[in-house]
Write a protein that binds this DNA or RNA. Structure first.
Lengths: 217, 217
DNA sequence: ATCAAATTACGTGTTTTACGTAAGTGAATG
DNA sequence: CATTCACTTACGTAAAACACGTAATTTGAT
């Protein structure tokens, strides 16, 4: 049984999508929401395996939300549905951490397949899309940066929380007080973050946090 | 006597502009260059009161250069000449630290007046432009951030140098070794930066450096 | 039920930051 | 020419943060 959360800011779209997915065997819709705040809160209580996220036509700021969801719920895969499937939007979706993308020509069967693919730990970007992603990815490899078999590891919610507070210029002591934990624990969290991400200095940690929309510049 | 440096990447433009300004009484052109690197080096040896900077039509990265010149030579006022005088470009020029702007309709008299105005410590943005700047400025005031009569102070070249190295994740000791100074001095420089800019934490210092193109994210 | 990761926390030694003080240099100004 | 002001250099002392190791408990996933 695959547990699925659905986001769509358009009520009718949300309803039809929910019904569609709920009717597929082995798929269970555990959450459907039109509101990101609500979605986030509910996800904290009940995790989902997959988030199906309908991208409104306009929006770019939604991709920031996706980044944030991605860091908050690292084990959840995000599948984006979008009417607009231009190169730009797909690349941005990939960058913000989506693991799948379904363009305007996708059908129900594609949706089902995408969810299953994500559930098995793979990415899903429709056939025509794959080559775009691949091309750009290969291009990006030309840049001679060392990435020594080093996957981008994900932070835990708590780690992100600490990073966020620290990024707002709070001292370790202030963070500790706010979260009712020891200063030593705050330090430990920060140490873990640095180890996990293989960062050399706190400066790098700030940069990481900015790049990943964890703190505001 | 006002000492003026001129930048224009177009040779013919540089020559005519230089000649024009040099012919104005009390104005002395001490430097004219088509190359930013050369300009920066020469300015280190001989400071100018005013830099007249001709903005190429296309360029946005030039505005980054202006930011950098501004921090490197805080006492020098930068006057921008630009064929393109849309809202966008003006606002960016202001943000990058230019103290004056002359659009496509300006004449020689305006140029002279602008230079004199800057020399007296004021800003010069042609009449039609002033209201744009003002409007946006007022809008920005709506954001309830505390700015307690606190002007944005400029860093010295040395301070920027330290900030830049530190922003590349070097430790104080490494910076000290690189610059052949004591660790204590590096610390002092950083303290001065924090005091001058009224920053609460090193996190803020990183943010400042990023915002001002001193370090790369 | 079991195994991995997350959260909590301490010990110890080094580095950085906070804040004050201070000498020497150079540019600006009256 | 004297004065003033910012800049660069540097030290002293105490507090805070960081590096690195260890470890008990809890939570999650399979």
């Amino acid at each position: 049984m695959i547990e699925i959360a659905i986001y769509n800011d358009y009520q009718l779209g949300l309803e039809t999508l929910t019904k569609l997915i709920a009717d597929i065997p082995d798929f269970r819709v555990t959450l459907s929401s039109r509101n990101i705040e609500e979605l986030t809160q509910s996800l904290k209580k009940r995790k989902a395996h997959i988030l199906v996220y309908s991208l409104p036509d306009d929006s770019l700021k939604n991709l920031i939300q996706i980044s944030q969801l991605k860091v908050a719920f690292p084990r959840m895969s995000i599948l984006i549905l979008s009417q607009n499937d231009g190169d730009e939007i797909i690349m941005k979706a990939v960058k913000s951490g989506a693991r799948g993308f379904l363009g305007k020509d996708s059908n129900t069967n594609d949706l089902k397949e995408a969810i299953l693919t994500l559930r098995n730990g793979y990415e899903y970007f429709g056939n025509s899309i794959t080559k775009i992603v691949l091309n750009r990815y290969i291009t990006s490899l030309d840049t001679p940066e060392q990435l020594p078999a080093n996957e981008i590891k994900q932070l835990s919610a708590r780690q992100i929380e600490i990073l966020k507070l620290w990024g707002q210029s709070l001292s370790n002591q202030e963070i500790a007080d706010k979260l009712y934990i020891s200063v030593r624990t705050v330090e430990t969290h920060k140490n873990h973050i640095m180890q996990k991400l293989n960062l050399k200095s706190t400066v790098d940690m700030v940069k990481f946090a900015i790049k990943n929309n964890i703190i505001e510049i």
